[in-house]
């Protein structure tokens, strides 16, 4: 199996924002501003994936699924 190193890079944020985050994470489970920023960005990206991702599951889709389930014998 290949050894795949996790890579990190730097992103600049305004110093006042950095300081604000530093205060906010005090006493939380976040041990650094980077951890917090990574968490927030992942949350946003995950939400966006969810919004863009799955097309809405319509009544028509549901009927098609049930047709397949019937064809395979899962539904009477």
């Amino acid at each position: 199996m290949e050894e795949k190193e996790k890579k990190f890079t730097s992103v600049s944020i305004p110093v006042p924002l950095f300081e604000k985050i530093k205060k906010r994470i005090n006493g939380t489970g976040f041990t650094s501003v980077s951890d917090y920023v990574t968490f927030v960005l992942r949350e946003i990206l995950a939400e966006e994936e969810e919004d863009e991702g799955e097309e809405p599951f319509t009544k028509e889709d549901e009927e098609k699924v049930k047709e397949r389930l019937r064809a395979l014998g899962y539904l009477d």
């Binding site: 994936e49 799955e54 397949r68 064809a71």
Partner: peptide, 20 residues
Amino acid sequence: VIPPYNFNCKFKPVGYGLPE
């Protein structure tokens, strides 16, 4: 569940996850 579940990725399962 059907269709199959995805987390943190965009994927349209084949045949709603019931390939025939």
